[in-house]
Amino acid sequence: MANVHKDFHGALSYGIEYLHERSGDEGVRAFFSGLAGTVYRPLVEDLRKRGLPALREHWQRIFDLEGGVIAFEMQGDALVLTVHRCPAIAHMREQGYAIAPNFCEHTRIVNDAICKAAGYAASVEYNQVEGRCVQRFWKAAS
């Protein structure tokens, strides 16, 4: 089982703030988009190969490890992930860490990059204050 050290969410939040301060929205987007070709390359390949079940299994594993509260449903051909309790936001609040104002944007950027690289598309609507979001994933029109 993977080791879970949730303070890393706080460090990531500081990293987002730092990037934004130094290079604005474009810098944040450039950095996090690039992760699809490195950190998330295995997920991209799995998504391309197996489709939406790969994403569903990824999210299930991650949120189980971190103790998030989520639900899945299919809406037509789209996989919908509803996060009722984001473990990152919850932990940072519990520990009193500063949370970058644009923290949740990294989810949009990383999801977009992963999906685009695999021939899929994504959207997210979030409420960062409440630590909730709805993420959607579907196969992009070819």
């Binding site: 879970v4 460090a11 990293g15 950095f31 992760l35 950190v39």
Partner: peptide, 15 residues
């Protein structure tokens, strides 16, 4: 959400 289990790779990439 980037999981805390993936953070170290992201950290290294950020450096």
């Amino acid at each position: 959400m980037i999981s805390c289990t993936e953070f170290i790779w992201v950290y290294s990439e950020l450096f």
